[in-house]
């Protein structure tokens, strides 16, 4: 019956898949080296990221779990037949300064997730500003190349109190809030551990409260995030993609 087709695959035009640009803005300050679980104090101390820390052996550090979570996120996106062609990820880290450690590209070209190392202070404002700049630049590239795109996502993860430049932090909050109010950005502020300044995180999210990660459930969070990317990349005009709040319960406390 194929002979009766009025049009065949070779007759179709080849439009690029609409993209979902996602920036992971990750805290890699010294406090992200904090360890949970069974560990033994060495008796040594170190002053970093605004406080004194006991050095220990054993246990699991936040940064190691974050690293595994990000790698899991990439794997989940690669395994999703739709998200793999639509999601585009960039990673910004912030410690003493903000750095783009992995720039936007097709997922298949981002073979290795860079190693995240905990060091220095928490320049959160600088990190968020760089993330917003990169998202803007990527959107312009899409426009220049005639590629359709969805609302960009900013995932902000921190375990501490910002101690970078105050004016940079205020600028970052203002830019983020303005974009959210204009429906130009979706933000996921995530607190890690018990020492996170949730009020600062909340200031980045005027529409819903920031979420606090349960323990070190980074992998659960990133699994949820990848499913949400997949859902968004299939949404059609007028369809509001509702975040799966039941799914959040597995990894976050509201």
């Amino acid at each position: 019956m194929d002979n009766n087709m009025l049009l065949r695959i070779e007759d179709l035009v080849n439009n690029p898949t609409p993209r979902v640009p996602i920036c992971l803005c990750l805290d890699t300050s010294g406090s992200m080296g904090a360890v949970e679980g069974e560990c033994v104090k060495t008796g040594e101390t170190i002053y970093e990221d605004g406080r004194t820390w006991n050095l220990v052996t054993g246990g699991t550090s936040r940064i190691d779990e974050l690293q595994k979570g990000v790698e899991q996120f990439y794997k989940a996106i690669r395994d999703d037949e739709i998200a793999v062609y639509s999601a585009e990820i960039c990673i910004v880290t912030f410690d003493n300064k903000a750095t783009c450690v992995l720039d936007f590209a097709n997922i298949e070209r981002q073979e290795v997730v860079p190693e995240l190392k905990p060091i220095g202070d928490t320049a959160m404002g600088e990190g968020v500003n760089l993330a917003l700049d990169l998202l803007e630049r990527r959107k312009q590239e899409y426009k220049d190349k005639g590629v359709d795109y969805y609302q960009p996502w900013l995932v902000l993860m921190t375990d501490g109190v910002p101690n970078g430049d105050v004016s940079e932090l205020n600028r970052a909050v203002n830019r983020t809030v303005e974009m959210i109010n204009q429906k130009k950005l979706t933000v996921f502020p995530i607190g890690i551990g018990n020492e996170t300044d949730m009020s600062t995180l909340n200031s980045f999210s005027p529409k819903r409260p920031a979420l606090k990660l349960q323990g070190l459930k980074f992998q659960e969070f990133f699994a949820w995030l990848s499913k949400s990317v997949s859902k968004t990349s299939q949404s059609t005009p007028g369809e509001s993609v509702k975040l799966d709040l039941e799914g959040i319960k597995g990894w976050a406390e509201l």
Binding site: P18, D148, Y149, Y150, Q151, K184, T232, S235, T236, P237, G238, E239, V241
Partner: peptide, 9 residues
């Protein structure tokens, strides 16, 4: 006539 984003119109 889409808005800025592909899933808006």
């Amino acid at each position: 006539e889409n808005g800025e984003f592909v899933n808006t119109t």
